[in-house]
């Protein structure tokens, strides 16, 4: 393994920005603890996926262009979501296919890492579990699982925590039903999917759900809350930071 970079960029994603901002701070602290300088461009917004997956390529391009400009340079870009990372890594090159920005898009795509992928594969991070024993379930987003292939890296991180018991839930590989605008375009299908996902999570008897994708968490937590369940999902960055935080770091 080549030596890890000294500096990285963090791409927070629009959903983390508005709904799960602490995950971004946790990720920064995790990275900084490994001796890495983290830059967070204030000009960042969204990867453009909502427009892209709705068929509006022109609109997706202008948002994608803004991100490519906000993250100039050649440092790695660590992304707090498998889905947004997949968009930037796998879809930006085709989005600009045949356009002047194609080379730029390819170079940009090559810099993209999903957070858990970066922590394990680039940093080879070693975690020491300082938390109380807990049973959790992991929900891996479809893009993280299939497009980015980073389910294993989430697992590898959680497996380092010796007081965390990871439990399987029924149909674990199945989509939670979010799907961006799908959730409002086809609300009853989406509702049926999240109903089954949350039932499976509740049935496996864990105290907490962990995921590396906040779009899924927005969906899953929203459903759990509506059902009056106590169970909630948390971004893996928050979960890892909270369990490995040294006492002196808290002071």
């Amino acid at each position: 393994m080549t030596s890890p970079p000294k500096t990285v960029y963090l791409f927070g994603t629009c959903i983390v920005d508005i709904f799960f901002p602490t995950a971004g701070i946790s990720a920064i602290k995790l990275l900084e603890r490994e001796g890495i300088e983290v830059r967070y461009p204030q000009a960042q917004s969204c990867c453009g996926q909502p427009a892209y997956s709705s068929g509006y390529l022109t609109e997706a391009r202008s948002v994608a262009m803004a991100q490519m400009m906000a993250f100039s340079g050649d440092e790695p870009i660590v992304v707090l979501s498998g889905s947004c990372a997949g968009m930037m890594k796998h879809h930006y090159p085709s989005l600009f296919d045949g356009l002047p920005q194609q080379t730029q898009a390819r170079a940009f795509a090559a810099r993209i890492y999903e957070l858990t992928e970066f922590l394990t594969k680039v940093l080879d991070i070693k975690l020491c579990d300082l938390g109380q024993p807990v049973e959790i379930a992991l929900h891996t987003s479809c893009a993280a699982r299939r497009e980015m292939g980073v389910r294993d890296t989430s697992l590898a991180l959680l497996n380092q925590l010796d007081k965390v018991v990871l439990k399987q839930h029924d149909h674990e590989a199945e989509c939670c039903g979010f799907g961006g605008t799908f959730s409002v375009r086809h609300p009853h299908i989406s509702a049926a999917m999240v109903e089954d996902k949350t039932s499976a999570l509740k049935a496996c008897g864990v105290q907490q759900v962990v995921s590396a994708d906040c779009a899924c968490l927005l969906n899953i937590n929203g459903a759990l809350e509506k059902q009056g369940a106590a169970l909630r999902g948390q971004h893996i960055a928050d979960f890892l930071w909270q369990r490995t935080q040294h006492v002196e770091a808290k002071q």
């Binding site: 709904f19 204030q42 609300p187 009853h188 929203g222």
Partner: peptide, 26 residues
């Protein structure tokens, strides 16, 4: 909020965005 709340509570934005938290943290 329409279709979303058929199966979910309404989404709750955080009090401060990550952009703001990062600026404060830095």
């Amino acid at each position: 909020v329409g279709a979303w709340t058929i199966a979910r509570a309404k989404p709750q934005p955080a009090a401060k965005s990550l952009h703001e938290l990062v600026a404060e943290y830095q």
